[in-house]
Write a protein that binds this DNA or RNA. Sequence first.
DNA 1: CCACTGACTACTT
DNA 2: CAAGTAGCCAGTG
Length: 114
Amino acid sequence: MNDFSKRVIMIIKSIPEGKVLSYGRVALLAGSPYAARQVGWLLNSSTEKYSLPWQRVVNSKGKVSIKDTVSFIIQKELLMKEGIVFKNNDTIDLKIYMWDGNIINFDQIHLEES
DNA sequence: CCACTGACTACTT
DNA sequence: CAAGTAGCCAGTG
């Protein structure tokens, strides 16, 4: 288990209910801006082990991009149960649900407001 | 070590 | 908006 994996796990676990994060965002926060794909894989292999809210991770378009039909449905159901609303074409409004409480305590990173 | 894969993304048609 | 393309990175064989 490398640092990247640990950070991803940590980040996913800190996503609050009713909020989501994109794979790319998680990868970014974990320190590897372009490791979005690994995030998906990581979820798949660590969800049970760490009880991760994997359903709260979607792609940058606000869609559930998992291929497995069953999991796809489950994810939608879970999210809707948390209060997230899907539009007719299975997409959610990232402007509203994207978790920007962002920037976890990763030292170097800090919030810059104007 | 090399080649291939993929729950991704941003960019171009 | 849909489809194709080129990067990116960790796991696997």
